[in-house]
């Protein structure tokens, strides 16, 4: 696969694209890493309440330097502020919100996604590396809409979207939609269905970068 032929979205462009699909009034959990940037791009006029697994509803923006509260952090361990209407709670309540279907949307990163909606985002095949699962498995079983935000291919050009995952699974058949730097794809019972190609990419090139058939 010659990656130079593809026009890949930057991380910021990808976050902005995901943000378009976060509706007004929704409760959203943003996974650690790239998904945390989505909140910066949600269009003006939409009120979205962000949940963080460590016990907050109503995560607000990063505080100005010098005004950090060392005991006010999000799941990525970044210092945060609170949005109006925020609440604190302990861990079992936080995970009841996640498993119990109270959160509307979760945005997560992934190593691999399969056409049957399986997600692999917590462990690789490297057994010497200590695994770390965090709250990912709880989120994917409880949140009805799982958006995955990821690179379309690995650095070596091999696909991350596959017929079946080869890495240990986080959840089975849980992914709703995948946003990559090349395309937006829905996971439907028949497999990956194209929603849109990112600007400047043709279908054949994106299909060639994908390890499963893309339905149109």
């Amino acid at each position: 696969m010659n990656l130079t032929q593809l026009n890949m979205l930057s991380d910021a462009q990808l976050a902005a694209r995901v943000a378009q699909d976060i509706p007004d009034g929704s409760y959203v959990n943003l996974g650690i890493g790239k998904p945390t940037h989505v909140s910066a791009y949600v269009p003006e006029g939409r009120e979205v309440i962000y949940h963080s697994e460590n016990g907050i509803l109503g995560v607000g923006p990063t505080p100005p330097p010098g005004q950090e509260d060392l005991e006010l952090i999000d799941a990525s361990k970044r210092y945060i502020t609170l949005a109006p209407g925020a609440a604190f709670f302990e861990h079992t309540d936080s995970f009841a919100m996640m498993r119990g279907g109270h959160i509307d949307i979760a945005v997560l990163g992934a190593y691999q996604v399969a056409e049957n909606g399986d997600l692999a985002n917590w462990a690789t095949l490297d057994e010497t590396y200590p695994p770390a699962v965090g709250g990912a498995m709880d989120l994917v079983v409880g949140v009805p809409t799982i958006f995955v935000m990821m690179k379309h291919v690995n650095r070596d050009g091999t696909p991350k979207l596959l017929e079946r995952c080869t890495y240990p699974l986080t959840g089975l058949g849980v992914v709703s939609r995948v946003y990559t730097d090349l395309a937006v794809l829905d996971v439907v019972p028949q497999g990956f269905r194209l929603v849109e190609l990112t600007p400047g990419n043709g279908f054949e090139a994106v299909q060639a970068a994908t390890g499963a058939k893309i339905l149109t």
Partner: peptide, 14 residues
């Protein structure tokens, strides 16, 4: 090392 999903860890403790 025993890795436990975070919500399962909290609920097992509860």
């Amino acid at each position: 090392l025993e890795v436990v999903p975070q919500g399962t860890l909290a609920e097992r403790i509860r």
